[in-house]
Amino acid sequence: MAQAATITIGSKVRVLRVRDRIPADLVEALKADPTGTVTGFRTVDGQGIGLEVDLGAGKGAWFFDDEVTLA
């Protein structure tokens, strides 16, 4: 969770991995360019923080904070 404290809305991040299954079009978008911009935060599992990331071209998803790093 320490990393999430340094990431703010507007931060550029790189998706390093994905824990859950995601749609094929999102997999392709991440293969093409795994970077995006943080657009918001969400509470996950009642304990952690998820990051809402805009990947461009109308694609976006949320990721756990340990799935991304600052780009």
Results as ranks from 00 to 15, higher is better:
36 G>C: 03
1 M>Q: 06
36 G>V: 05
58 G>E: 09
31 K>E: 09
31 K>W: 03
37 T>L: 13
3 Q>N: 14
61 A>M: 13
3 Q>K: 14
7 I>T: 09
16 L>Q: 03
68 V>R: 01
48 G>H: 06
71 A>N: 05
56 G>Y: 07
36 G>L: 00
49 I>E: 09
14 R>Q: 12
40 G>Y: 15
5 A>V: 09
15 V>C: 01
47 Q>G: 07
45 D>Y: 09
2 A>E: 13
1 M>L: 14
49 I>K: 05
51 L>P: 05
19 R>D: 07
53 V>R: 08
46 G>N: 12
31 K>P: 01
70 L>K: 15
67 E>N: 02
46 G>S: 12
12 K>Y: 12
46 G>A: 12
11 S>L: 07
25 D>H: 10
29 A>Y: 00
18 V>T: 02
4 A>G: 06
8 T>E: 14
49 I>C: 10
40 G>Q: 14
58 G>V: 14
7 I>D: 06
3 Q>H: 11
21 R>P: 02
30 L>H: 00
32 A>P: 04
23 P>W: 10
24 A>R: 10
28 E>P: 02
1 M>P: 05
52 E>A: 08
7 I>F: 08
64 F>Y: 10
52 E>G: 08
68 V>C: 08
71 A>Y: 03
41 F>M: 09
47 Q>C: 01
29 A>S: 11
3 Q>I: 10
68 V>W: 02
10 G>L: 13
33 D>N: 11
69 T>H: 01
33 D>F: 06
62 W>N: 13
56 G>K: 12
3 Q>M: 12
34 P>D: 06
37 T>S: 13
54 D>E: 13
28 E>F: 04
31 K>H: 10
58 G>Y: 13
41 F>H: 11
46 G>K: 13
21 R>S: 05
54 D>F: 11
71 A>G: 13
9 I>S: 04
25 D>P: 11
61 A>S: 15
24 A>M: 02
17 R>H: 06
51 L>C: 10
2 A>V: 06
24 A>V: 09
61 A>F: 07
47 Q>M: 10
11 S>V: 11
65 D>I: 02
53 V>S: 12
9 I>G: 04
20 D>A: 04
51 L>R: 01
16 L>K: 07
45 D>F: 13
16 L>G: 00
45 D>P: 01
55 L>T: 05
13 V>A: 03
63 F>N: 03
21 R>T: 05
71 A>H: 08
49 I>R: 08
12 K>L: 13
45 D>K: 12
33 D>C: 09
70 L>F: 07
68 V>S: 04
5 A>P: 06
4 A>W: 02
22 I>C: 03
17 R>K: 06
4 A>C: 04
71 A>V: 08
70 L>A: 15
31 K>C: 09
71 A>C: 10
10 G>K: 10
19 R>S: 05
61 A>W: 02
24 A>W: 04
28 E>K: 14
28 E>V: 07
63 F>V: 00
55 L>K: 07
15 V>L: 00
41 F>Y: 15
55 L>A: 03
32 A>M: 06
1 M>K: 12
6 T>Q: 14
54 D>N: 12
43 T>W: 07
22 I>E: 00
65 D>M: 03
11 S>M: 11
4 A>P: 04
13 V>Q: 05
57 A>P: 04
57 A>D: 11
34 P>Y: 02
35 T>N: 00
63 F>S: 00
2 A>M: 07
16 L>P: 01
57 A>Y: 08
7 I>R: 14
47 Q>A: 08
67 E>W: 00
34 P>M: 03
54 D>Y: 12
